[in-house]
Amino acid sequence: MNIFDFFRERKKDTASIAKERLQIIVAHERGQRTQPDYLPALQKELVEVIRKYVNIDQDQVQVALDDQGGYSILELNVTLPDR
C-alpha cells in the first residue's frame, strides 16, 4: 500500500459508507421480518429456564432460526458466565 492509497482509504466518500451501512441493517431487518412470531417468546422462556440453573442475562442467549428451504435450523447460542 503506497501513501496515495492510504489517503484514498481515509477519504472514502460518505455515500459509500451510507450504502454499506444500509445494506447491512436492511438485510438484518428483513431477516427479522420473516422470522416466526413465536421466536421472541421462545427466547424469553429459554432464558428463564436456563436462569434456574445459571445466572445469565437476556442478551447472553441468542436464538436464530435459519431457513434452509426444505428445513429450518434452530440455533441456540448461550454464553455462560466465567466461574
Binding site: T14, A15, A18, K19, L22, V26
Partner: peptide, 17 residues
C-alpha cells in the same frame, strides 16, 4: 452531490430496496 460522493445515487437506492 451524487457525483461528489456525498449522496446515495439512484442505482444505490435501487440496489438496496
Amino acid at each position: 452531490r451524487v457525483t461528489k460522493g456525498e449522496m446515495l445515487g439512484v442505482e444505490d437506492v435501487e440496489e438496496i430496496l
